[in-house]
């Protein structure tokens, strides 16, 4: 049982090296990003998310739509527990798994096998747990003997295959994704797709940020459209997608 409950959540980023606000910045703000402002002490802050209130329950497959800088990634990080809201209240119950930046923590001088341990450790597995699953991971990645070679000898496809194989081994209750993961050549892509679908099926809550209409329509049953850090629209996929992509 997993739930996510947001009540008037705001996220403000303090910017310490931008003391002067100029007209140029004012103008830029209209085009992209959140809202620049100043807090009580006169520091420059970027308001990345403003006044978000929603509840996600088991079975929700939430898609996040929005232009660059609309606050999608910040929201994902908030959901992942990286940031705590500057004001408001975010209650998140459930084991969180993140498929954002699956290559994080990979050391190219270390071997594939060592990197499986690093990556697994970062995702919260203990050494013993990884050791139990390592054969499956290696088999899935189809790296064969390459797994004992330094990662710098890998092609970028192999690199991603390894990262993918480790990162999708967990079955979290809340799954966070930034774009649908798709890796490898034709054969692998098919296998990866199958694993992703399986992963998405067993997770209680999925939150995915995407620019792709197909992904949103295929996977989600609820879509939130963010604009300048605020919820512009929140509803069923068809209507939000229609409005966002300009119908």
């Amino acid at each position: 049982m997993a739930t996510i409950e947001f009540n008037n959540v705001c996220v403000d980023f303090p910017i310490y090296n931008a003391n002067t606000r100029s007209l140029k910045k004012r103008l830029l703000q209209v085009a992209t990003g959140g809202q620049l402002g100043a807090d009580q002490q006169g520091r420059v802050v970027v308001r990345a998310l403003e006044d978000l209130s929603f509840t996600f329950k088991d079975g929700d497959r939430v898609g996040l739509l929005g232009h660059n800088g609309a606050g999608k990634s910040t929201l994902l990080r908030l959901l992942g527990g990286v940031y705590e809201p500057s004001s408001g209240c975010a209650r998140i119950n459930g084991v969180i798994g993140s498929l954002i930046d699956i290559s994080l923590g990979i050391d190219s001088e270390a071997t594939g096998r060592e990197n499986i341990y690093f990556r697994g450790g970062l995702l919260g597995m203990t050494r013993a747990e990884i050791s139990k699953q390592i054969d499956d991971i290696i088999e899935f990645s189809e790296l064969g003997n390459f797994v004992d070679m330094p990662m710098r000898t890998y092609s970028s496809g192999m690199h991603l295959r390894l990262a993918f194989s480790v990162s999708t081994i967990l079955r979290p209750e809340i799954l966070l994704m930034d774009e649908w993961l798709s890796v490898g050549d034709e054969g692998f892509k098919h296998k990866a797709e199958k694993r992703m679908t399986e992963l998405v099926q067993v997770t209680n809550i999925l939150v995915i940020a995407s620019h792709s209409r197909e992904v949103i329509l295929d996977t989600c049953n609820r879509v939130i459209w963010l604009e300048h850090g605020r919820v512009r629209m929140d509803g069923d996929p068809e209507s939000v997608v229609a409005a966002y992509f300009g119908g």
Partner: peptide, 9 residues
């Protein structure tokens, strides 16, 4: 920074 901004460890 890289880890802190991606994972809640």
């Amino acid at each position: 920074e890289g880890i802190i901004k991606q994972l809640s460890i």
